[in-house]
Design a protein around this nucleic acid. Structure first.
Length: 638
DNA sequence: TTAGGGTTAG
């Protein structure tokens, strides 16, 4: 007791309150006055002097001395900030030595430390040994499992916690929501949250919005958002992100406007979601406007990646390259985005060169990077390169080829007319073939007129997905190309009977930051009469330079818009005519389509680009076509 | 006296 009173006396007043505990009596205090040792230890902990604190702790252990729980907490913080795992283990051993029974909050601190070091098993072992677990102990473990997506473990722990009679709080709910694995359990959790009166907590609210968005339940997300009385920027970001991630760019942009009206400043996550919305809608002008705000966060990696993707997907490769070159920090996403962007925009060889640079830079490619590389090969007919990269993904990078990589290879071989080789690859594959495999094969059969394989592949796709309108159309077009009209009729009948409807072709064009939509056969655009007049004039002009509408595309029309008289009014033709009359000379006409471009529109766009001296970019769901001076960046290979 | 939120590539 004497030692303690001396210790308190020697400590600065700010620290003395932490030493209310009685240290275990010294076993051999002759040469080491315990009071000064404890004093030193406490001081080193508060000074965050880890090496000296550890040395003092060693000496204390030899004397059987222990300090106050708050002091140990300081030491744990110090280990955490220095990522000193070995020292952290010494601290743990010391805390549990000498039969000392540490306070619950101290063990919670230790568990949290192990979690932060990604040593989940050690955290779980400590948790299991605890005689008493409080809400923080449970929440720390639940949150740890949620973070590493061990959702079952997180949910199991929640059940055990309830059985143990510990009531979850807002921390627990905001953690466990991320682990929610079904809409049913989400509904149950949401009910409990309301019952406990925790639904007004902003953390819980943003977690609810995120998880509803993850399950595609935007209406529920919006309800949770709408109940918010006091504003919160993260909750705004959650709801904007929810719409952006569910491909509702319009919804995201409208919410963004509301956020600004409500007086909130856009930060990195806001701008990232807004860029994603622009990317989805191909709104280059708006995206470029957002770029100005991005400059404030000059070297934010995620934001720059989103910007890069926006420029790639809006077909503005110059801007994308400039962003990419200026990025000081690049990660695997930056490289993958640029590689895929180049490939989709018709710059396959540049994409492959960039892949080489990526390897030199030391960034390890991943599953998605290789998909971009194989996409580049398949869209440029680079069979040898494709095989080389396909083989090296496993041998060099240790990435197992997934179905999608096989799909790319089959696409590559199929386009190059190597149907036998494609089929051999399917046979060699360790996966059961599915639509990802059969579709590219089917497409290759259409191009290379292989009826037998086409029929087989189409039937396989329809077995797996009987409502896939694209495949019915493809099959019927393949029959039509071979004049097998009875088979065409059977396919159409099947479609009708199964209630399968094809999506109508739609094109969007951005004019002065406004989106104008054109749907085949829809005359709701206020300027439709003038647009049709322009289109007819244009067709007349093109005919003079040799344009002949290719009606064979009516038959092999990829995914819709197949009416014989409709080819003239395909949505992209209307969009091009509108672009020509609305955008000033020299401005690129940028069009986004929901279906793949048909061959006739492709020729039409090439000739228009030449005759009108206008750049046209058309983005379809798979790739991009840059029309300039009578040629297309895809090299007519798509 | 410890535990919880939003953003990027196919």
């Amino acid at each position: 007791m004497k030692a303690i009173s001396k210790l308190k006396w020697m400590m600065p007043p700010s620290l003395s309150r932490h030493c209310s505990h009685t240290p275990i009596a010294s076993r051999n205090a002759a040469n080491h006055p315990p009071s000064s040792l404890l004093d030193d230890f406490t001081r080193f902990c508060y000074q965050r002097d880890l090496p000296r604190a550890i040395r003092a702790m060693d000496a204390m252990q030899r004397l059987g001395l222990q300090a106050d729980a708050v002091t140990y907490s300081e030491l744990i913080k110090c280990c955490l900030s220095r990522r000193a795992i070995a020292e952290a283990k010494l601290v743990r051993n010391h805390i549990f030595s000498g039969g000392y029974d540490p306070k619950t909050f101290l063990v919670n601190n230790l568990i949290n430390m192990y979690v932060k070091f990604n040593l989940l098993e050690e955290a779980q072992a400590l948790f299991d040994q605890m005689p008493v677990r409080n809400v923080v102990s449970w929440t720390t473990m639940i949150s740890a499992y949620s973070n590493v997506k061990l959702n079952d473990k997180a949910l199991d722990l929640m059940v055990l916690m309830l059985r143990d009679g510990v009531r979850p709080n807002m921390f627990t709910y905001s953690s466990v929501l991320r682990a929610c694995d079904s809409l049913v359990s989400l509904g149950q959790l949401h009910c409990s949250i309301i019952k406990a009166g925790l639904d007004s907590d902003v953390f819980v609210r943003s977690a609810l919005i995120d998880i509803y968005a993850k399950w595609g339940e935007l209406r529920c997300a919006l309800c949770v958002f709408g109940e918010m009385v006091t504003g919160d920027s993260v909750v705004w970001n959650s709801i904007i992100g929810a719409f952006a991630q569910n491909n509702d760019g319009d919804g995201a942009l409208n919410l963004f406007k509301r956020m600004k009206r409500a007086g909130f400043q856009a930060d990195q996550p806001t701008l990232t979601s807004v860029l994603r919305a622009c990317t989805g809608l191909a709104l280059l002008e708006l995206g470029a406007q957002v770029h100005v705000h991005v400059l404030k966060y000059d070297q934010d990696l995620i934001l720059n990646n989103a910007l890069l993707d926006m420029y790639c997907k809006c077909g503005s490769l110059e801007d994308a390259k400039s962003v990419f070159d200026r990025m000081v920090e690049k990660d695997v996403i930056s490289w993958s985005t640029m590689i895929a962007g180049l490939a989709q925009n018709g710059y396959s060889r540049e994409a492959l060169k960039l892949f080489e640079l990526m390897k030199v830079s030391g960034t390890k490619p991943n599953y998605i990077t290789i998909l971009g590389v194989l996409f580049a090969c398949s869209h440029a007919g680079l069979v040898e390169d494709g095989w080389y990269h396909f083989r090296s993904m496993k041998n060099v990078y240790g990435i197992d080829p997934g179905r999608e990589h096989y799909g790319c290879m089959i696409d590559l071989l199929g386009r190059a007319g190597k149907l036998d080789e494609a089929i051999r690859l399917i046979e060699e594959m360790e996966y059961e073939p599915d639509a990802i495999i059969w579709r590219p094969l089917l497409d290759a059969c259409r191009v290379h007129r292989n009826m037998d394989v086409a029929e087989y592949a189409a039937k396989q796709v329809l077995n797996l997905d009987p409502e896939d309108a694209g495949t019915y159309i493809l099959l019927s077009n393949i029959y039509a190309n071979s004049q097998r009209w009875e088979d065409v009729a059977v396919v159409r009948k099947n479609m009708r009977e199964r209630g399968v409807r094809k999506e109508p072709g739609c094109s969007w064009v951005e004019v002065t930051k406004q989106i104008h939509a054109f749907i085949l056969g829809d005359s709701s655009h206020p300027q439709i009469v003038e647009i049709n007049r322009q289109l007819n004039l244009l067709i007349h002009k093109l005919r003079e330079v040799g344009y002949v509408p290719d009606t064979s595309f009516v038959l092999r029309d990829l995914e819709g818009e197949q009416k014989e008289d409709s080819i003239r009014y395909h949505s992209e033709k209307l969009a091009i005519a509108f672009g020509l009359m609305s955008l000033s000379k020299g401005k690129t006409i940028r069009i986004r389509k929901n279906l793949r471009i048909c061959g006739d529109c492709h020729i039409f766009a090439k000739l228009t680009a030449k005759v009108e001296n206008r750049n046209i970019v058309i983005r379809d769901p798979i790739r991009y076509h840059h029309f300039q001076d009578g040629i297309c960046s895809c090299g007519d290979y798509w």
